[in-house]
Design a protein around this nucleic acid. Structure first.
Lengths: 173, 173
DNA sequence: GCAACAAGGGTGATGTGTCACCGATTCCCG
DNA sequence: CGGGAATCGGTGACACATCACCCTTGTTGC
């Protein structure tokens, strides 16, 4: 089955296991709470909020679709679908791009501005309340450091993997 | 509009802002990669993997639904739907509970065992590769500390909020 | 005894995210 | 010039998550 000399999985040790599961649990819990609060208090979903934030930071509340895509680091299709739904809800509008016929703009509507200006302070308050109020300055620094470290190393990780990983572990159909 | 003396939002400062967005980006990136890798190499989704892990840690690969619910900290409905899909895919089976007529068991099938034993080592390898290989021991400790701190403080945060928050920020319909 | 309620589990509708794929335009290069 | 590739955006199908709601079985209060 395996041609590799070390078929035994390189499991996480106790501490790594706990840290990993803790992180998973933390994400789930915080994201769930924030999403629910947002939905209940402002009627916005997390995805809508993210798009509105990016748009509201652009001049005129107006961006090309691909700019929005880069700003939020979303996949193309996801953003397209999201915009479609938000157009239906009246939060944003699509506008054709005269310079590039294949391009398109997304613009905040009045309702969109209203929604984001109402939602943002509440959302930030909850982030504080559930997250930052529990953390010391050192912990916040550690978090920032940690996020940057992992994100910065991803490109290198992609290079060192590429093919070898698929070989190393063996083949499923 | 606001009856509160401090209507101006208590924004995050520069450092908090960066830490928060870094954390969001980190989650998105790592989760996306792991989900994609899992899907491509083993055909499993992240949700399926989580359920299979919990079940595989139970004696006989067999749990009551509510136990699974507590183990994974999922909502009832979510788990029900997930089990339904996994039954259709043949990864688990439902079994009636003789002791409690309203209860039900979920059991790993052979295909379920096969899937999780194939998937787990690969998944762990990727967690190492993308996440732990980038981090020092101190950073892992900081992560564990941080997760525990925030999670432990949530109950208290719920108490200190309750009503006041809705009043403090004002009302949207 | 029986009405009210909690616990265990499930259903249908709707919004969300990903994959595979399509269509149009622009760029590049021979 | 002409054709292939990349860019920009979109569609349809399917898996996922949440909400509101339902049924059944115990339990508790009167």
């Amino acid at each position: 089955m395996t041609t590799d000399p070390t078929p035994e999985p390189n499991w996480l040790n106790e501490r790594e296991q706990r840290a990993w599961r803790g992180w998973i649990a933390l994400q789930a819990e915080i994201n769930r709470r924030l999403a629910r609060q947002l939905q209940r208090e402002t009627g916005l979903t997390g995805a809508e909020y993210a798009v509105l934030v990016s748009l509201s930071e652009a001049p005129g509340g107006r961006m090309r679709v691909f700019q929005l895509r880069e700003a939020a680091d979303w996949e193309k299709t996801r953003l397209t679908h999201q915009i479609t739904r938000m157009v239906q809800r009246g939060l944003v509008a699509r506008e054709p791009c005269t310079e590039d016929p294949r391009g398109a703009f997304v613009v905040l509507t009045d309702a969109g501005w209203e929604a984001i200006t109402q939602a943002a302070p509440r959302h930030v308050a909850h982030v504080r309340h559930w997250f930052y109020d529990a953390l010391s300055e050192e912990q916040v620094d550690a978090l920032l450091d940690l996020s940057r470290t992992v994100l910065a190393r991803l490109p290198e990780a992609d290079r060192t993997m590429g093919e070898p990983c698929t070989q190393e572990v063996g083949g499923l159909p």
